[in-house]
């Protein structure tokens, strides 16, 4: 466990909590893509099946359970509790465009052809594109609430820190996981455009709005 990994996990947790607090306080999920949140719940569900098969550490187990619970609470808030505030009109990204290629790829390119390993690979590939419905929604409406941009910032920061973690692990342990690294880099690239807007607009006190 290195500093990048810990900060990455903290940043990931913070992003998830920011989103939950935003929805809870404003009693609204306006501007949030329910589809992205469904994908994240699916990501955690398919990745953390090893909770039933292997014990890694208390930290690992507790974090996995927290992520799972938070993901399902978020989906529940959007589709049940605050359903009336959900902007389904603008959450129009076609999920099959992500799910079909991701499913196909996880069968083709995995570490071993076993159910758990294929599902783990599926979750890695799916996570790399799961934010696209959210980014699509923002580009469609042309704006995002500042708190939503903080959520995206910490989610992107988590990805960037994981890359630093892999560089560190490669140099210290000669460890790298090609599937995780390639997907992780792809995922981080999706945040670059957003990072630029966050730094040039949000951090200068302006609302994120697209021309």
């Amino acid at each position: 466990m290195n500093i990048f990994r810990i900060l990455g996990d903290v940043s990931h947790l913070l992003a998830i909590i920011i989103l939950l607090v935003k929805i809870h306080r404003s009693k609204s999920c306006a501007g949030i893509s329910g589809k992205s949140q469904i994908l994240f719940a699916l990501v955690f569900t398919t990745r953390y099946l090893d909770l039933f098969t292997t014990f890694i550490s208390l930290y690992n187990t507790v974090m996995k359970v927290i992520f799972l619970i938070c993901a399902y609470i978020t989906v529940y808030m959007i589709y049940v509790k605050f359903r009336k505030t959900f902007d389904s009109e603008n959450d129009s990204f076609r999920l099959e465009f992500l799910l079909v290629p991701v499913t196909g790829l996880s069968f083709l390119e995995n570490h071993s052809f076993t159910p758990l390993e294929i599902l783990w690979t599926f979750s890695i590939y799916l996570e790399s594109v799961a934010i696209l419905p959210q980014l699509f929604m923002i580009s469609k409406t042309g704006e995002a609430e500042t708190i939503t941009t903080h959520y995206l910032f910490f989610l992107g920061l988590y990805r960037a820190l994981y890359i630093a973690n892999w560089v560190w692990r490669y140099h210290t342990e000669k460890f790298y996981d090609q599937i995780a690294v390639v997907s992780g880099v792809v995922q981080t690239i999706f945040y670059c455009d957003f990072f630029y807007l966050y730094v040039t607009k949000v951090l200068k006190g302006k609302k994120l709005s697209l021309p």
Binding site: R5, D9, H12, D50, T54, I56, S57, N60, M63, K64, F67, H111, W120, Y162, N165, F175, D177, I179, A180
Partner: peptide, 10 residues
Amino acid sequence: GLHAAGKDEL
């Protein structure tokens, strides 16, 4: 194996 260690990440 090498990739199994990857599962310690979240």
